[in-house]
Design a protein around this nucleic acid. Structure first.
Lengths: 368, 368
DNA sequence: TTGAAAGCGCTAACAC
DNA sequence: GTGTTAGCGCTTTCAA
């Protein structure tokens, strides 16, 4: 690593002024071909890479968009790893384990975010931006967010991942887009999905296949806005079908596979229903496990549906009927909203609602 | 969005100099408490967020690390999405599909990178850095990579994702760490895994379970360095076991599930082997499909192993014996190497070799 | 077509 | 403890 070359170095070596160097890089046509070549040679020879900071400062825009996520993987207390300590020669090339199926699977929300990120990245590229990501960890999420906010032209945050007051302050400085979560009447741009409507439709599909008398709903934790919306959608659908709320068994889980298993066991104890609508895939899969253990067949004896469209839902036996979030498009839409607001800072706040995809698979269909 | 506040605004409102404002933010103890409070009030009132560009320029370091990946998801020709065109009211809240199991699954390499990214993010946070990501797309990968290089203090790149000459030039400006891939004798820091050794060990395990006479290897595409290393590891193990190369059937696939299926069909035509060692999970799973279709049981009739540790391998029936990449740790190690070099620019280039995890599951074990 | 020079917003000596 | 001031490396008028 030689000393970093600057415009001055390039200019001197090419025998021109720094202004010309800058022009060659930003508006090549405004420079005479001979001069341009000379400058480019100099750039190559010196291994010159323009400083993003200087550019950002001078242009008053960085060309970077930020994406802020909450940390879901308990990463604060991840095992220590220190590749610099100790002797590399002592590291074994491999370890052997009799492995259970689900060792170290990532948190589902992480998988969700991975795809959102991919969509954002794609669109950012199309629009000529680079992406900076930050993950919230521990208390001072406030720190990280602001740290990022200072370096970007616009910021995307997952709903509820940033305290309202912090978000409000940041929005004072740069455009903010809120991802997913309920579209509140605030002043940010939003991109969301129609949780409730999709759950209503899914419920209708289930009702068309199941004996209404034996319907059960497995709700998420009380503090989950998504969970709440899904419940609302379900409730609306049964009301519409003329089913009394009392005729439906409602249990509450915490979105984990284990809680789904427990709920199913309780249902079995009460007499298994004809259909179980779960507020997410994990719980649905757990329930299917429990049903199977009890000798109850899915979908023959009980129809089951999930929500989210995680990969395991596609690979399970039976394959799980579910609703898939348009994750890639969530990310892309967020970037589009940001790009728009960067161009029109004073446009009305906008909420984009993306369609969900109901995936009808084996678990919800009564055999012919 | 009011006009962005600067140090000058904050200073003026607090009745101090800009130096004091800067101090309050960077070394609070060097400022008298009263003054400090006054400044902080001003900061809050104005919604002041320091400019990363200005800071980066003045400090001559950005506090950002870059991560550059090749684009694997054919994203260039992703379907058009334009949330700004057309009327939002016309967007349906959902769509319904009779869904096959594997609609729109992400490219396995993407899943790999997602986890590497997560590890890098975690470690970056621990070390007080922020992460910037860039994905190579289309021809001018050179563009993107340089774009990023100009904005970061250090850069991590996936092996082979950046042309050698470009990488060499960037390394002239900032520290570079190469992720995965063969550790060449070049001047970068590397973090890799022991592909060959792990494959040797896996092969030994298989040999302990299978009739050596009927061994088959399903290789990856010729141009894959990983594939090559895995082949070497396999070859070494059979040589060590005194098995003649001619006694092993070697087929070549392209890492896809379909190619695994085809290979298995060919094997079946020639008379199924006692064991099939595949160079990755996808092909192994495809092969299992084909065996099942032909009424050949795994692991009873044929033992099968994969490589990579993708999620589908854990969920398949039978569960697939495989080798899992330490993806999180790859990301973390890369950041650690970068942090080290930032502190000691002239230290010897270092290669960190991370252990692979051999996951012994159902597909490779002859029933008792 | 090219050069000179004024910032962009911040940090860090160095004075006071 | 606090203020003054000189850069950091680049873009961009404005002149020449």
């Amino acid at each position: 690593m030689t000393k970093k070359a600057t415009v001055y170095d390039v200019a001197e070596r090419a025998g021109v002024s720094i202004a010309t160097v800058s022009r060659v890089l930003r508006q090549p046509d405004a420079v005479r071909p001979v001069t341009r070549e000379r400058v480019l040679d100099s750039v190559a020879a010196l291994g010159y890479v323009p400083s993003g900071s200087a550019r950002g400062l001078a242009e008053r825009r960085t060309g970077v968009l930020g994406l802020y996520f909450p940390g879901f993987d308990a990463s604060e207390d991840a095992p220590v790893l220190d590749v610099l300590a100790g002797d590399q020669a002592e590291v074994p090339p491999f370890t052997v384990e009799q492995a259970s199926a689900d060792a170290g699977a990532p948190h589902p929300t992480m998988l969700f975010l991975d795809e959102v990120l991919r969509g954002a990245e794609l669109e950012a590229w199309k629009q000529g931006f680079v992406l900076m990501i930050g993950v919230g960890r521990g208390d001072p999420a406030r720190e990280t967010v602001r740290d990022i906010a200072g370096r970007v032209d616009g910021l995307m945050v997952l709903a509820q991942s940033v305290p309202d007051d912090v978000l409000a302050r940041l929005a004072q400085r740069i455009p903010v887009v809120v991802l997913s979560g309920p579209a509140r009447g605030d002043s940010y741009d939003h991109v969301t999905v129609s949780n409730a409507e999709a759950m209503s439709e899914l419920t209708r599909l289930v009702l068309a296949q199941a004996d209404p008398g034996g319907l059960a709903f497995l709700a998420g934790p009380e503090d989950s806005p998504d969970g709440a919306q899904r419940w609302e959608g379900f409730a609306a659908a049964i009301a519409e079908a003329g089913i009394a709320a009392d005729d439906v068994t409602v249990l509450r889980g915490d979105f984990t596979r284990a809680s789904g298993r427990r709920a199913a066991e309780e249902l079995i104890a009460r007499g298994a229903p004809a259909a179980l609508v779960a507020a997410n895939d994990q719980m649905a899969l757990g329930a299917i496990d429990a049903f199977r253990s009890a000798g109850i067949r899915v979908p023959d004896d009980v129809r089951v549906t999930g929500f989210d469209g995680i990969e395991a839902a596609a690979l399970s036996r039976p394959t799980l009927t579910t609703v898939r979030q348009p994750m890639i498009d969530l990310g892309r839409a967020a970037v589009q909203l940001l790009a728009r607001r960067l161009e029109q800072p004073d446009a009305e706040p906008m909420t984009v609602r993306l369609p969900l995809q109901i995936l009808v698979r084996e678990s919800s269909q009564r055999p012919a």
